[in-house]
């Protein structure tokens, strides 16, 4: 029985070295070589398979810092949203106040023009008032002439 087992293992090992064993057969080998009762002439395989078994137990224990990356992405996204909002507000109020400024300027120009027009009118009125003086002169002279006659 024991002899047959060793024979079988030796056959598997031959295939193993040629890399023609299946995963299942290799697991059988691993099982045989990690138990206590190993044929002494196969000692080097015992070392190999115990190593494989132990090496499989090693674990990755560090954490993967995923969250900061994600948060960063969100942060960047929100910054761009905020920037767009600021730009829209800025454009809206900017255009608004520019229009107000423009209107104010137009009003000032109109005021200045009207003022000028009134001044012109006032100047002409003054002129005509001076000229009206001649009319008074006529009146006075006619009175001078006709008053004594009436007496």
């Amino acid at each position: 029985m024991e002899f047959n087992k060793v024979k079988y293992i030796e056959q598997l090992l031959e295939k193993y070295l040629e890399a023609t064993t299946t995963v299942a057969e290799e697991q059988e080998l691993q099982q045989y070589f990690t138990q206590d009762n190993v044929a002494p002439h196969l000692e080097e395989y015992r070392m190999m398979f115990s190593f494989f078994a132990v090496a499989k137990e090693e674990r990755f224990t560090k954490n993967v810092p995923l969250t900061p990356e994600k948060r960063n992405v969100n942060y960047r996204k929100w910054i761009s949203v905020a920037a767009v909002a600021v730009m829209i507000f800025g454009a809206y109020f900017g255009v608004n106040s520019y229009q107000q400024y423009q209107q104010k300027r137009e009003a000032e120009i109109a005021y200045a023009e009207t003022k000028q027009a009134f001044e012109l009118l006032a100047m002409n009125l003054q002129k005509s008032k001076v000229q009206m003086g001649y009319l008074n002169e006529i009146d006075e002279t006619t009175q001078k002439i006709f008053k004594p006659v009436n007496k």
Partner: peptide, 23 residues
């Protein structure tokens, strides 16, 4: 070294040096 890993398996391995040799 493998001291903190798989104590039960390590017991089966008589000689820890052989593991280092394998490495």
């Amino acid at each position: 070294n493998y001291q903190d890993e798989s104590v039960s398996l390590q017991r089966k391995v008589e000689n820890v040096d052989s593991l280092e040799w394998m490495q």
